[in-house]
Design a protein around this nucleic acid. Structure first.
Lengths: 364, 364
DNA sequence: ATGAAAGCGCTAACAT
DNA sequence: ATGTTAGCGCTTTCAT
């Protein structure tokens, strides 16, 4: 023990200021005991625990994550994987899409609460090297858990890899069978809610603009709309317009729905951009919203507040979902039993100005 | 008897799949040689390098950051420190403030390009424990560099701590003398640009709504406006209204400026929220923008696109600044000479619909 | 309940 | 130009 001289060493390289050794020396115990206290391990007498803890506090000791990870313990790191192209496009276009912010709001704060950190990583689904790329990221970072967002949540290359490596992970927006914790905001129910809201307002011709087929939630939303329409005995023929989440596709879809021989009096769009496009088309055709046309959007990103009129929308509880995902992942890591069924964090309908009573049938 | 099963993996612990050892064995060389190849070190013969590299590729080897950090090398981690309360407020309110996104867009992509990662950390400036908190974060993460954003950029507790620990860091939005790389978007010049734009349009009564005094850039913006006004020989008496970046303070300020005996015909607000407030007050008073009143905002967050009319604004090049900050920090780490003067990434004026010719003096 | 010893994967310092 | 030897700070075994 004479070889440990924790006091002296101001050299060029940056080393840990206070290490477990300093604490052990200060408390007059072995490294092992300090380690036990840090990790809340068993077999430590209360007095011992107090003594060590006070040394820790006194010295301001904080364990090095790198060292913890090195010795086969946790990395206290949760990785959130987002679609590369889409995220960069959202950030660059500055249209107010705040998916990543909401993930951080929910996930990062929950992580902090539990002593973990969250890191964002952009992954390109369309890339041939997804697997290689992800494998490299995992090797470099060794995260304790991973949060998958659409469309990664349904990418078998990714889920299989994580499963093989025994890394706990959540699949947001996915209910397909397979490894990982499945999480959904129940898009089908949300679409039903939106449709029912319009039906209650007297609408009969309710058009739906779908999202990109790459996201399975697109289909769920269509399904919810169909179900609500069917339950009300309403015809949906010609009322489903395909979109791909882009503004342009929303315009096309809106033109189609408003150009029908028996035009729609309400449009549900699978995201805000397409809803905004519908609003534009309505304005262009001299239709007033909501007097002549009601519009509901999915996502509830910031723009819905600034649209004129403000948009009735399905609010996606992204922050809540990310927060729950973190909890579940950490549970999983600790060996707690995991939910077998998909975890549902239900989305809600927020009523604003863009929906109103169906217009009276125009006289022919 | 503990019957060992050599084939079975230990349950909980995850170890590196491919380590430097595997590569060394495969290539038939020492660990050190592999290490040299990884780190692009000197003293490796070309053939050797090729041989090792092909083993690395074959095995899909990626160095463990934890191990690299442990052995006194880099952590390949850059930490971006944001104001806790403000960031959470922005995320929660969902008003489209995308400062963090822009930081990620610029910083994260540049990091990725250079083999680094970026992590966001929220720090509470008003907290007594800033120092303890930050010290803990550094001990846990051991970042290779730190990016400070306002108001942290001017917090001596933080800058001193980082300087003491010899951690390279950038101070975005700060030009005060002191350690660290100073970076500015030249707010004064930006305010001058905005003011000059209005003067060119014939405005003489140009009001200015300042931001919170906690941010030194607030004063710079005021200075720029004053300078431009003085250069044009215009009186600024009563034309400076104090705000604090909040919508409410923007409303108060706008009421003051429009309620003067000789009211303003143009308002420059120190951020988007306050500009939006001015727009509201104008509408409320029956003033048309830009016919009766011109408005310019700072920040250029997404909402400027959705306001009616769209807002002429000073665009803050946050992404570009974060990107440059990363470069400079990594340079600093490598011992490259650092800029002695503040690094300027100039903001630009984006002309939209909210500014127009000054109205003709109303007949008395 | 506590301690001692053996690494984890990697790099710096010193050989050769 | 390459290999060898010590650790880095921590958590496992495994003793006591």
């Amino acid at each position: 023990m004479a070889d440990d001289n924790p006091g002296a060493r101001p050299r060029g390289r940056r080393r840990q200021a206070v290490t477990i050794k300093h604490v052990a020396a200060d408390a007059g115990v072995s490294l092992q005991t300090v380690s036990r206290v840090i990790n809340d391990g068993a077999n430590v007498s209360p007095e011992m625990k107090t003594r060590v803890q006070s040394s820790i506090d006194k010295l301001g000791y904080v364990p090095s994550i790198a060292a913890q990870r090195m010795s086969g313990s946790r990395s206290y790191l949760i990785l959130a994987l987002n679609d590369r192209d889409r995220t960069i496009a959202d950030w660059s276009s500055r249209q107010g899409v705040d998916w990543v912010d909401q993930m951080l709001l929910g996930g990062m704060l929950k992580c902090a609460e539990l002593g973990y950190r969250m890191m964002i990583e952009l992954v390109d689904t369309h890339n041939d090297h997804v697997e290689r790329e992800l494998r490299a990221t995992i090797a470099a970072l060794q995260p304790d858990g991973v949060i998958l967002t659409p469309p990664h949540s349904d990418n078998p290359l990714i889920t299989r890899l994580l499963d093989d490596q025994h890394i706990p992970f959540a699949r947001i927006g996915s209910i397909a069978a397979g490894p990982g914790i499945r999480m959904t905001m129940d898009d089908e129910r949300a679409a039903r809610l939106a449709t029912e809201h319009l039906i209650e307002l007297g609408h009969r011709r309710i058009g739906f603009v779908s999202g990109s087929g790459e996201y399975s939630l697109s289909q769920w939303r269509v399904d919810g709309w169909k179900a609500a329409m069917a339950a009300a005995g309403l015809n949906i023929r010609d009322l489903l317009a395909e979109g791909d989440f882009s503004f342009a596709s929303g315009e096309r879809a809106a033109r189609h729905l408003l150009g029908l021989r028996d035009p729609v009096t309400a449009i549900i769009a699978s995201n805000d951009q397409m809803a905004l496009a519908a609003l534009d088309v309505a304005r262009e055709q001299g239709l007033s919203v909501p007097a002549d046309l009601s519009i509901i959007s999915f996502d509830d990103t910031p723009i819905v507040h600034f649209a004129v009129p403000t948009l009735t929308a399905i609010d996606q509880p992204i922050a809540a979902t990310a927060s729950r995902a973190v909890e579940l992942i950490i549970d999983a890591q600790r060996g707690t039993d995991l939910p077998d069924q998909p975890v549902v964090i239900p989305a809600a309908l927020v009523r604003r100005q863009s929906t109103g009573p169906a217009p009276n049938p125009s006289p022919r």
